[in-house]
Amino acid sequence: MHHSITRSTSESRIAAVMAIILVAALAAAPWWGSTAELRLIGEFMIYLSLASLWNLLAGYAGLISVGQQAYVGFGGYMLFTCAIYLGLNPLLAIPVAGVLGALVSIPVAFLVFRLNGAYFAIGTWVVAEVFRLGFAQISSLGGGSGTSLPIKVMKAMAGSKWMREAMIFETALLLGIGTVLAIYLLLRSRIGIGLTAIRDSQIASASLGVRVERIKLVTYVAVAGMTAMVGALIFITKLRITPDAAFSVNEWTAFVIFIVVIGGIGTIEGPIIGTIVFFVLREYMADLGSVYLMILGAMAIAIMLVAPKGIWGYVRERFNLSFFPVGYRVKLDTEKALKPTDTPGGT
């Protein structure tokens, strides 16, 4: 019997071509879009990135954090510090914030990794609270009432308003698309195979020699660094930072968790679909205020109870689709061999 092993699928190749066209069109948005459209797409990219990162952490590494706002806020504050006190160009300060975020996550991991499973989640929340209360004590960054990015810092980035907006937009696009691509490539790598194994069974993967704790630590630190970069970008667009906004559990963690759960946890496509759903809902229901939040919460609960793999998990099971083929598929040459009743190697 002939067979070949392949990763790509015909739908994944079509999707790749369409994605390239879409990204190219988005990259040209500063030339065709209004300021409001640029902001919306930029915000979409920010949530896409945060959701993909949280999904990597919770959906693959099994690290359910409700404290990722610690790194969003930390990144934001590092950006303000670098830009205001070191005179760094804000865009260059983004990677610096990322490196600092990754560094600070190492001692944090040392502490929170001592907590198991569910208690880990609350432990990460405590850390985020410590960050919030800590930054509120730093008077040179405005203490509890926060601080603004001086105009001259923004002017130093680029002279014209259009140029600044375009630069911020392209950075958001780079972070959003870059995060998804980076996670895709990571999951295809050796570490990714380990992560997928952890997702499927932690005990089995440990017994097969996957260094579970080490892979989890590396993932936690990498996600913290990336999250800090996104945080830095967020507060360039907001121009103002306060401890409450920087370390908001609702905005940087609750929304993100809902996006991932609704889209489909433990898949690359899930956060993309979830972000689209989130923005569509927000467009129509954000005026409802707190009722909108209740609906989001109820949706997440309903999905967890009825279809725990989210929208994408449901679609994938029904249609056997995969746009980001991470695993391998065995393709048999004879159609007869595809019948499930045939046992492999039976001929």
Binding site: I64, M294, M304, P308
Partner: peptide
């Protein structure tokens, strides 16, 4: 671990609002 955590997290948001 995920379902109970996420369901109670959803409940938390619903209750507050």
């Amino acid at each position: 671990l995920l379902p109970p955590l996420l369901v109670t997290f959803g409940l938390s948001v619903i209750l507050q609002n």
